[in-house]
Amino acid sequence: MPFDLAQQSLGLIIVIFAICTLIIGFAGTRLAGIAIKLAERTGMGQIISGALFVGISTSLPGSVLSVSTAWQGHTDLAIGNALGGIAAQTTFLAIADLVYRKGNLEHAAASATGLAQTTLLVSMLSVPILAYAGPEWMIYHIHPASILLFIIYGFGLSLLSEIRDEPMWLPKKTDLTEEDAKQHKPDAHPQSTTRLWGEFLTFALLTAIAGHVIGQAGLAIVDITGASQTAVGTFLTAISTSFPEFVSAIAAVRMGAVNLAVGNIVGGNAFDVLFLAASDFAYRDGSIYAAFNDQHLFTIALVVLMSGVLLLGMLNRERRGIGNIGWESVAMLALYGGSIFYLAG
């Protein structure tokens, strides 16, 4: 249920916001470790587990925020949070590249499934634009594009599984890509699969609750400061609710699980597009795509461009570049930094 934090002082709201961000970061770290264990138990592989386990569960704070604020009629915050989260999380890959000192992260994490995930993301991002520019068809109060997004996502996961099991092409192996093929050491005190799932769901629920509180704190900040909902959603709440992706990606890179890091981010990004579809279900005053403004369209175009740069980087596979990171990471950092001046200006 929504609650009003605007009656509290700005200082207290910021404290609540910070505490929830830390909770999300802590839970995201635990989820990353549990996802690796579940991936090994299920045999799904790092890239698929990143999409299903880490990608979905660490996206819960943002999804809860967007859905709850859309239900309250705050479309700018809901849309800004969904799209801003994708932009922020793509930038996190560039930061993870800085942490991975052995070479270019996109070189080391090259895989057919990684390329497929990014292609799925770009394809899904085109649907909201079509819904915005096309006729405003409605099924009750839901736009058909929202239903289509869920269908595309499910079909995409099915394709990812097929690509992983029977890839029609493979990236060239190098001394860097061999690192990801190493198996993690078995746990000294292995947990049961039931306990792992219990912990996974517990931490996922914790991040969801924290995400809802952050959404209400964001609305309170808008009321008190007069800042635009789009700016607060695109940067403030989006970065905060995306903190699990950042923490888990850095943790995965440090453990050498580079494919899990990429699968976490790109898989989470594809799931984040579903924030818009879920928000459209929750929004009761028409299609949420009709509420798009120029800043929202700018953010979608930014994310498509950043995803394209990432895709080209994974295909090019530069071993090392400026600051020991790939040119694509430099470009993504520059694009995101430049967007701040436009969207927050």
Rank of each mutant, 00 (worst) to 15 (best):
Q183E: 15
V127T: 04
L121Y: 13
L125E: 09
L125M: 14
H107E: 12
A145E: 06
G154Y: 07
M168T: 10
L148R: 01
H143N: 15
L130F: 09
G114K: 00
L130V: 14
P171L: 10
M138P: 03
S126W: 13
G114D: 08
D165R: 13
T119C: 10
T119E: 02
I139Q: 00
L160Q: 08
L121C: 06
H141Q: 15
A133V: 15
Q183I: 12
E136H: 14
K173F: 09
E162C: 05
P144A: 04
A109R: 00
D175P: 01
E166T: 15
I139S: 07
F150V: 06
R164Y: 12
I151V: 15
S126Y: 11
E178G: 13
W137D: 09
T113N: 03
K182M: 14
E136S: 14
E162S: 13
G103L: 05
W169E: 09
E166D: 13
Y153I: 07
P135K: 13
T119N: 07
L98H: 07
S123W: 13
K172H: 12
L159T: 11
E136R: 13
D97N: 12
S126F: 14
R164D: 08
M124H: 01
G156I: 06
E179T: 10
G156Q: 07
A116V: 09
S111L: 07
M168G: 10
F150M: 07
I139G: 02
F155W: 14
A181N: 12
A112P: 03
I142D: 09
Y140R: 12
E166N: 15
A145Q: 00
L98C: 10
Q183D: 12
L176T: 04
I142G: 04
P171W: 07
Q183F: 07
M124N: 00
D180N: 14
P167N: 12
P144L: 04
K102Q: 12
I139C: 05
S146E: 03
I163K: 02
I152P: 00
Y132S: 04
G156Y: 08
L115N: 12
G103F: 02
K102Y: 10
L149S: 05
L105E: 00
G156N: 04
S158M: 12
S111Y: 09
G156H: 08
W137N: 15
L148Q: 03
L148T: 11
V122Q: 08
L121E: 06
L105H: 02
E178V: 11
W137F: 14
K102V: 06
E166K: 15
M138Q: 15
K172R: 10
T113Y: 04
L176G: 02
L176Y: 00
L120W: 06
E162H: 08
D97M: 11
D175Y: 08
T113W: 01
L115C: 05
Q117I: 00
M124W: 03
D165M: 04
E179G: 03
G134N: 05
D97Q: 09
M168Y: 10
L98V: 14
L120I: 12
L149G: 02
F150C: 06
T174H: 03
H141C: 09
A112S: 14
